[in-house]
Design a protein around this nucleic acid. Sequence first.
DNA 1: TTATGTATACCGACTAGTGAATATACACAA
DNA 2: TTGTGTATATTCACTAGTCGGTATACATAA
Lengths: 194, 194
Amino acid sequence: MPDTQSPTRKRIIDAATRLFYAEGIGRVSVDAIAEKAGLTKRTLYYHFKSKDDLIAAYLDGRDQPNLQQIAGWFDAAQGGADRKVEAIFSNLARVARHPKWKGCGFLRTAAELASMPGHPAVKVGSRHKSNFETWLAGELSGHDIKEPQALAREIVLLIDGCFSIMLIHRNPDYIEAAGRAAATLVRARSRNND
Amino acid sequence: MPDTQSPTRKRIIDAATRLFYAEGIGRVSVDAIAEKAGLTKRTLYYHFKSKDDLIAAYLDGRDQPNLQQIAGWFDAAQGGADRKVEAIFSNLARVARHPKWKGCGFLRTAAELASMPGHPAVKVGSRHKSNFETWLAGELSGHDIKEPQALAREIVLLIDGCFSIMLIHRNPDYIEAAGRAAATLVRARSRNND
DNA sequence: TTATGTATACCGACTAGTGAATATACACAA
DNA sequence: TTGTGTATATTCACTAGTCGGTATACATAA
């Protein structure tokens, strides 16, 4: 049984992460990942039992980094909950301008695997999105919001709407619009707005 | 030059539509489409110069049907703008329960083609989404809304957020939540709510 | 000896796209 | 009416390459 902490395994996931995110899981071959990682395909298959497993490992490795990036933006923003939520969107608009930005890897993978709803990678994505929603609800509950869980879900919908529509229009104006909508929803549920 | 109105061409697009939507563009081979259409691959390549062209034709054929389905839901709903908008979401939740439902073909195609932003199919998708946003803004402007275009964009973001997140969680509750959020945004911009 | 890790070489199935031939239909001239 | 030319539409057989995955062998270390 291969060592799940091995540096070789990590090298493979790093290579897979860069290629899968840049090109999409269907357009990247196992050969290409092995070459990028500087080893042979047979070695890759020693550490992962299938490409599907590797896809799930790729997303699993993005769970915490992605979550903590957004948490960092939220924490750093000044002001009330509406301003902190809006900061998520303005930072998103900033990074989305980078030419290498290709949307949300979790959503893109789920879109590619739409015909395989039980795929392990989709489950990893589902867990990640739930983690994020739960984290956001927790943050909002400290800001005098009436129904923090319902609000968190609405904001998540706007964030994922941004990710998707940006891949079609490539126009960051949509992210700004989503940020304003999110702020409106926050204020609609703020206690001091009664 | 092939006839762009030919019934054979239509048969090919019909077959492509069913397969591409069910499996995703990357998982469907040109051979499979030809077989489904009941002709040979060489004939398919007489009518379309490449698979990429066929993908664009598939989405182009979905523009009006998709738009008119949602317009039908909107028109049939009773009540003010908030109720009509909410009707879009409740109908969406209904059809999303069907086992063959696989999200929005435009968004899924854009996700698969994220590494090729100038792909003709992405342009067709962009035009479709703009058409929808424009139609919705027009409808809203007849309902005493302050900034119908800005509101239409916010609702579009919620709709596309539903499409995406549904592929991850497969839980229609998210669509209901989006509907309530949309209704909140509508009321926030209604003149009679000042 | 046994477990872990890596390499070369290969498999059968599938991929998008093409070359060459042919079937069909209609126009026009003898 | 018959023969010929031409554009459209279709088929069979094929190319050159890629796909995920594996059989076999070898090295190193406990």
